[in-house]
């Protein structure tokens, strides 16, 4: 006989569905770079377009993080420490995801994509090479949207900031998301028992890429020739 449906069990849908669907709804709207048509094409324009885009994207990432289950429960200080340490990883995962359908092209925004030639002309060849390595990795894995949103939330929760006060709370956030990924893959791809592990093992390359990109932008900041908004500067400095 079927067990009686209790209120508790009736209220408890599969956790994986809850988390994945929540993260899918929390996905931000598309961003546009809107390069200044008055500026001549070249490295200065590309850098200033990217810095302006990054500043707006950080605002979006902060709003997005507030929608990650468990994140708002962290202390304000810990929310700041987490975001200051991982914002660029979250941003780059978004860039990698947008670039997946395009062969050898980095889609920084809907209206701002660079192929190798354009990246060279814009003085971004080294930076784009690093991002392309990440894109190729996710393309080889045939990353799905559900996996992307889970991985992005995990990148947030995977902060190793030494400034975090309540590490246990961050670990709980990480565990809940890890569990959601395991459950998702268990249900979606039972024939690929190592897929969740493979996805998680892309996080070191994501961090490495973020470090390279950070140094690129920090050099630009030190040169002082590219205008940077205050929030972008604040977040760059927090990582150095």
């Amino acid at each position: 006989a079927a067990p009686p449906i209790t209120t508790a069990s009736a209220k408890k849908p599969a956790p994986m569905n809850t988390m994945v669907s929540h993260l899918l709804v929390a996905e931000p709207e598309k961003l546009y770079a809107m390069p200044d048509p008055a500026l001549p094409e070249g490295p200065a324009k590309a850098a200033s377009t990217l810095c302006d885009l990054a500043d707006r994207e950080i605002v979006v990432i902060i709003s997005w993080a507030k929608n990650i289950p468990g994140f708002p429960a962290l202390s304000l200080a810990d929310q700041m420490s987490v975001l200051q340490s991982v914002w660029l990883e979250v941003l780059l995962l978004g860039v990698a995801w947008r670039s997946l359908p395009c062969e050898d092209e980095i889609v920084f925004a809907e209206d701002f994509a660079l192929d190798e030639e354009a990246a060279r002309a814009a003085g971004l060849l080294e930076l784009s090479g690093a991002v392309l390595q990440l894109v190729r990795k996710y393309r080889a894995l045939r990353l799905e949207r559900e996996e992307y949103v889970l991985l992005k939330a995990l990148a947030l929760a995977n902060s190793d900031s030494v400034h975090i006060e309540d590490m246990a709370a961050v670990q709980r956030l990480r565990d809940v998301l890890h569990e959601a990924l395991l459950e998702y893959e268990g249900a979606r791809r039972p024939e690929e028992p190592r897929r969740a592990g493979r996805l998680l093992l892309t996080l070191p390359l994501l961090r490495q890429t973020a470090t390279r990109v950070l140094h690129h932008f920090y050099s630009l900041k030190l040169e002082g020739r590219v205008p940077m908004h205050k929030l972008f500067l604040e977040m760059l400095e927090a990582m150095m």
Partner: peptide, 19 residues
């Protein structure tokens, strides 16, 4: 917090989401 005042303000302000 003083050094990171924009992040601090953005985290504090508004509702957690508009979804």
């Amino acid at each position: 917090t003083e050094r990171h005042k924009i992040l601090h303000r953005l985290l504090q302000e508004g509702s957690p989401s508009d979804i």
